[in-house]
């Protein structure tokens, strides 16, 4: 029997794979370890301590920036998911027509446009709006975050919608449901895992953003990532590691929650 060619059986494949994982996760592991350093260095281990977590917790600027980040991410994720859901409903289960591909492209464009371009464009645009309206609150950041989160929320929602049987909507209409009732009783309950995934993804993407936030924020509007960026220009202490570790934990727990929810769904069906 001649063995067919398989990438998996090439010598060194496992080694390269292990190396990749190592390079990916070793720095993160190091970061987490040094968050518990008793000393003030991020490179020399001086014993175990939780002092940097306490220090971050007592740092007024960190707490304020975190709270701001969470608020922006929560509102932006909801807005982006709402827009993405509507966009997904409008672009799936339709017969192909001229311009449909263009619509996909427009919706997903923010994924491809360099973030710095979007950032500069928003900076210029919002500075005009600020002049006209005199308003300089968090609204600009929320709007900016909502805008670039839409494609991230759109992808899982559309994937879910595509896998849904189009005849379910017809069956509901046949059974006297109005379009609004179809959406409420059939489409939305079945779409919910996709919407939830979109919401999570948008939330994490917003929480994580540096470039656009840096350009759009007014003074005193630091989010956690931009605050950390600012701190890194000065002295680097394990406090940064501690904040990052908490951040990492938050992201991981969100992903875990979503994973558990979607697995339960699958068990049901």
């Amino acid at each position: 029997m001649a063995r067919t060619f398989s990438v998996r059986r090439q010598s060194g494949f496992a080694t390269v794979a292990m190396l990749c994982f190592f390079l990916l996760y070793l720095p993160i592991a190091a970061l987490v370890v040094y968050a518990f350093n008793a000393g003030t260095s991020i490179a020399i281990w001086e014993g175990f301590s939780l002092r940097w977590f306490v220090s971050a917790w007592n740092n007024q600027q960190v707490v304020e920036a975190s709270w701001r980040s969470l608020r922006i991410a929560a509102i932006a994720a909801v807005l982006a998911t709402a827009c993405a859901t509507l966009a997904a409903l409008a672009t799936t289960h339709t017969a192909p027509y001229r311009g449909l591909t263009a619509k996909y492209a427009f919706i997903n464009m923010p994924l491809l446009v360099p973030e710095i371009v979007t950032a500069v464009a928003l900076l210029v645009f919002f500075s005009r709006v600020k002049l006209w309206t005199g308003y300089s609150g968090l609204g600009y950041l929320i709007l900016a975050h909502s805008a670039f989160c839409v494609p991230f929320a759109y992808l899982p929602i559309r994937a879910r919608l595509e896998s849904m049987d189009a005849s379910l909507g017809r069956a509901a209409a046949d059974l006297y449901a109005t379009p609004l009732q179809i959406f409420r009783h059939v489409t939305l309950p079945l779409l919910w895992p996709g919407v939830f995934a979109g919401l999570m993804l948008a939330f994490i993407i917003s929480l994580d953003d540096v470039v656009i936030t840096e350009f759009v924020k007014s003074s005193g509007q630091d989010t956690l990532p931009t605050y950390m960026l600012g701190q890194l220009r000065r002295a680097i202490t394990p406090e940064m590691n501690a904040i990052s570790t908490v951040f990492l934990l938050l992201s991981l727990s969100l992903v875990t929650v979503f994973f558990c929810l979607s697995r339960n769904r699958k068990k049901e069906s």
Binding site: S167, R170, L175
Partner: peptide
Amino acid sequence: LLPNQRPVNTVFQNYALFPH
């Protein structure tokens, strides 16, 4: 008339039962 306005019901080829 729209489908929901007709006193006519359909049994679909793939059944189209609501899975939830």
